[in-house]
Nucleic acid binder design. Structure first.
Lengths: 160, 160
DNA sequence: TTTATAACCTAGTGGTTAACTAGGTATTGG
DNA sequence: CCAATACCTAGTTAACCACTAGGTTATAAA
């Protein structure tokens, strides 16, 4: 799993798209303006998202992008995996020689952890994030240590 | 939050250290050998870990590294934050001008998500990973889709 | 006291990638 | 037709990852 600013851009853009769901197509120029991401870079990100059917583009004047499927069926993991392709972590990875058990142990441990993170992100949908509604106040002050409610359902069963 | 192979190296190395907890100091040369990470790169990673008091070095022959504190008090987030420094995501970040509410909304949404991920990783300790014990079989075959038990306690209250 | 072992430190390096720029082509509503 | 928009490809700059090289301390063992 890889989680960088690239993935963050994609998630932010998708969030922007989801917020305007039902209001007709959203142009990349708008997102570029709103989120402060370069238009051409957005195009590249959306090329990845389109490839995974997470968005649907409409050409011509009045065109733009729609979500490829309902926001409750798009997980954060879906988005991140679309743009930040999954890097293989284990070197032995079940196929190479891996002599001593100790090495395998840490590999398996990490592998499990990696899967847990993936499942976690896979359990968070765009709809969930938005349905939380007016999280934090109107202003732009982002408090960090505020105790939060249940943003995430504790089920974590919806692996992608 | 950033989650790359660099952080993975650190977690793997710390896991190796935790597995040998109580067996005297572990040399970086051993970890380098076991995990296939270059010695000098390990030294740099451990310089970060030492700075955050996650490990304690002992010089001289017979020296090596100990965990800086009990493995149940070291979270994955601790480790990753030590080597993969936290990147600030929001551009407005509570301090800059952020005119329209929409922009703030997506920023806040992402900020929340980022905190959730952080809290999630902060809830997983080295001890927890190890106490799971013989996860998966002896062999090195890493099955991906095996349903898992509760690797992570669902409380998620131990933010770092 | 010497010596080998290990941590500890600093500077560089090649390769990869992120993020962006530039310049197109294709499609479609007005 | 024309303008707006998606869609495409090839660069470019800077950052960063993973590593190499070559040190300096500190200390247990000889």
């Amino acid at each position: 799993m890889r989680l960088s600013t690239k993935g963050r851009y994609a998630v932010t853009a998708m969030l922007d798209l989801a917020l305007q769901d039902g209001d007709g197509p959203v142009t990349l120029a708008e997102i570029s303006e709103t989120q402060g991401i370069s238009l051409s870079y957005l195009e590249q990100l959306f090329a990845c998202l389109r490839g995974k059917k997470l968005v649907r583009g409409v050409r011509g004047p009045g065109g733009g992008y729609y979500l490829g499927r309902p926001s409750k069926e798009i997980s954060i993991a879906d988005i991140i995996c679309a743009v930040d392709e999954w890097v293989e972590f284990t070197r032995c990875g079940g196929k190479k020689d891996c002599k001593d058990g100790k090495r395998c142990l840490t590999h398996n441990l990490w592998d499990d952890l990696s899967n847990e993170i993936f499942n976690f992100l896979g359990s968070i949908t765009l709809a969930q994030l938005i349905d939380r509604g007016g999280l934090k106040e109107e202003g732009c002050i982002a408090e960090d240590q505020t105790p939060k409610g249940d943003l995430i359902s504790s089920s974590r069963t919806q692996a992608a």
